Simulated scan of single mutants.
Amino acid sequence: MNVFVAGATGVLGRELVAELAARNHHVVGLSRGARGDELVADRGGEPRRGDILDEKSLADAAEGCSALIHAATAIPTSRKPTEDEWVRNDRVRAEGARNLVAAAEEVDADRLLLQSIVWVARQPDGRPFDEESSPDPDRTTRSALDAERIVRRGGEEGGFDVGVLRCGFFYSPESAHTRQMGSGLLDGKFPILGGGPLGKRDATLSMLHVEDAARAFATAAESDATGCWHVTDDEPVSLATMLTAFADRLGAPEPRRIPGWLARPLVGRHSVRLLTKSMPTTNRRFRETFDWEPTYPSYREGLDEVVETWRNDGLLIAGGDGYEWREQ
């Protein structure tokens, strides 16, 4: 196939370009400059210049492609994201979805896949949920739900197939958030945020290693199945368990626990909500629809890979009983 990837220079996009190229597809990756061209080409793709927020440039870049993938986001990585940063992410998700729908119609594509997030359907009481559960979006996830509706409507009106992959909480050696977590644990500055007045109530998170996300998208691109699927690993985990396991692998101090409300002035209420509200879901429907299973079935195998990669890349330097973080 000829596959177009919007977001090809991001953490997921880079893995996806490499995965699709390894499967012998011709991959076109959207790029906005020379550095983006290099990132796409190094992973076996053909870089084409354009902007997710510019409809014409997007259609020009996607010319000749039968499958289009919206993997572009602008999720803030600052310690306390501003409203402007969230607005930028909203535009990339929703306006980007509208532009990709228009591009799919312009180039007569057969298929459009959208990367969404499982916590658009997280339930207020924290109970397990699935693809049939009613959405419960908040400020940070509303645009993801908007994008889902845009691509579904676009597929119905434009005559192309649509697949929505709601992914779990991403982590990987290349992820800025994972690196912030690792360096923060080593410095003793990444606490466990708990719910409730005393911070003793743990949230359960559905996780997904980025490599597994890329394999999921490549598998879905090769199929003609349509629908919405949750793509996660096999084992939801509490934030406390995951952070403690991460610290143990790094030889870092055991992370301290603080109430989420106490951290709100430092990191913002949206980040606190993400880490203190449970989102337990399952990949069952995706497994049943596609020939896919996660290479990293739980946080344990995934964190092992993250730490090993950081060691090999020189980001972690052995010192004493653990490691020190080397800034790059």
Rank of each mutant, 00 (worst) to 15 (best):
D84R: 14
R127C: 12
P81V: 01
T295F: 11
R127E: 14
L185T: 02
A61P: 01
R48L: 02
R153E: 15
R166M: 04
D125E: 04
A144D: 15
W119P: 12
A263I: 00
G182P: 00
L30H: 05
R287Y: 08
G10S: 01
G36C: 03
A97S: 07
E288F: 01
R139W: 13
D60T: 13
D51N: 09
F217K: 03
A62R: 01
D108S: 15
D212N: 02
A94I: 09
V272T: 02
E63F: 10
A318C: 08
D304H: 08
L20I: 03
T219Y: 03
D313T: 13
E148N: 00
N283A: 15
L39Q: 08
A21K: 06
A6P: 04
D90F: 09
A263T: 02
K80I: 12
T282S: 15
A103D: 07
R98D: 12
L243S: 06
D110E: 14
D161M: 11
P280S: 03
P124R: 00
D130H: 06
F290T: 02
R127I: 09
I52N: 06
T241K: 15
L186K: 06
T276Q: 03
L114M: 07
L39I: 11
I52H: 08
N89W: 06
R284C: 05
L275I: 13
T9P: 01
R269E: 14
L266G: 11
A221F: 03
D202G: 11
L262P: 06
N312S: 15
R257S: 05
P124Y: 00
G96R: 02
V267D: 04
V210N: 06
A240S: 14
D146F: 12
V5A: 01
M1N: 14
V40I: 02
P197Q: 09
R264D: 13
V164T: 07
S78D: 09
V11F: 12
D54P: 01
T77K: 12
E327A: 13
M1G: 15
Q115M: 15
D37P: 12
R215E: 14
